[in-house]
């Protein structure tokens, strides 16, 4: 059917479908968006749901199974797991945003420069990018987190520094594509400064591709943070889903108090799946072929 559509005569009144039209007709993308909105709301309204669990609770309420009073039960310190999970959403979103910021700050300039300037600069920068891509992420993260100290900012820095190559590659590919377009040639001929061409013309073209990659990166970031927290190298002052799992594992109640391990695991899964679905929706929305009449 699609191929047939390609040969249809387009009348003057027919317009290509808009991004939002395609996106909101992409079921998985909408599911992802709903999931993300839910996490954002959860993070924003966490203080209204309850104070951040700290220290220890009542000894009589240690390792209680889920109930109306404690939706997700309590942990080995008698603290409410639901509140830990809710406050953990804040950490996850904060962490994801910081990783994306670091990755964009490094990856976008590298990708733009590599794509815009000649062969040698591009090859050199892509060589560096490939080098970073080959680095084993988890051992490096563990090492850097151990050296820099356990804080959410440091973990984000570590993950960001190791994740920018993905953004750089996408940006470079988009830049190379843009470079072949006539309006860039025209801008060059008019003597418009390189910085302006990159910022005003090339970057807007590449931004849609970068957006798709950043949504995927959010999912990677939370997985990395959970891994580091589970290994005990996360920020001890905030709740994160990895930290809840680590507490259950350390206390030897992983299976005994299953609620301490099940709920944070489900939330990690939902968070990652939501962002992956969301990025699928965006990709579909940005794909010109999907937007054909």
């Amino acid at each position: 059917m699609k191929n047939e559509n390609r040969f249809m005569i387009i009348s003057q009144n027919d317009k290509p479908k808009g991004f939002f039209y395609v996106f909101f007709h992409h079921k998985l993308g909408v599911c992802g968006l709903c999931g993300i909105l839910l996490f954002i709301l959860m993070a924003i309204f966490a203080p209204m749901l309850g104070d951040m669990p700290q220290g220890y609770g009542d000894f009589s309420s240690v390792q209680l199974a889920p109930s109306a009073e404690h939706f997700f039960g309590t942990d080995a310190m008698g603290l409410d797991v639901f509140l830990q999970v809710v406050w953990g959403a804040r950490t996850s979103i904060r962490m994801g945003l910081m990783v994306v910021l670091y990755s964009i700050l490094i990856g976008v300039p590298v990708g733009l420069i590599a794509g815009f300037f000649g062969k040698k600069t591009g090859e050199f920068l892509m060589g560096v990018t490939d080098l970073f891509l080959t680095l084993p992420m988890l051992p490096l993260m563990i090492m850097m987190a151990a050296i820099l100290g356990p804080s959410i900012e440091n973990v984000a820095l570590v993950v960001g520094v190791l994740s920018w190559p993905r953004i750089a590659r996408v940006t470079r590919a988009a830049t190379l594509e843009a470079m072949g377009m006539q309006y860039i040639e025209a801008a060059k001929c008019l003597g418009i400064p390189t910085g302006v061409i990159l910022g005003k013309h090339v970057f807007p073209y590449a931004s849609s591709f970068i957006l798709v990659e950043t949504t995927m990166l959010m999912a990677t970031a939370i997985l990395a943070e959970s891994g580091i927290s589970f290994l005990g190298l996360g920020d001890p002052t905030v709740w994160s889903w990895g930290k809840i799992l680590q507490g259950a594992q350390q206390n030897g109640i992983f299976f005994q108090a299953w609620w301490c391990s099940l709920f944070p695991s489900i939330f990690i899964l939902l968070f990652v799946v939501s962002f992956n679905f969301f990025s699928l929706g965006i990709r579909e929305g940005l794909n010109p072929r999907s937007r054909e009449i």
Binding site: Q54, G55, Y56, A76, M77, P150, G232, P236, Q250, N251, G252
Partner: peptide, 28 residues
């Protein structure tokens, strides 16, 4: 860090000290 009796105990001590206005930074 891998002695759960000590890490759990440290959490309680941290909270107890916080209650009297002392900030204890637990380093695992």
């Amino acid at each position: 860090s891998n002695d759960v009796a000590l890490t759990n105990g440290a959490e309680v001590i941290k909270q107890c000290l916080k209650d009297v206005g002392i900030d204890l930074e637990v380093m695992l």
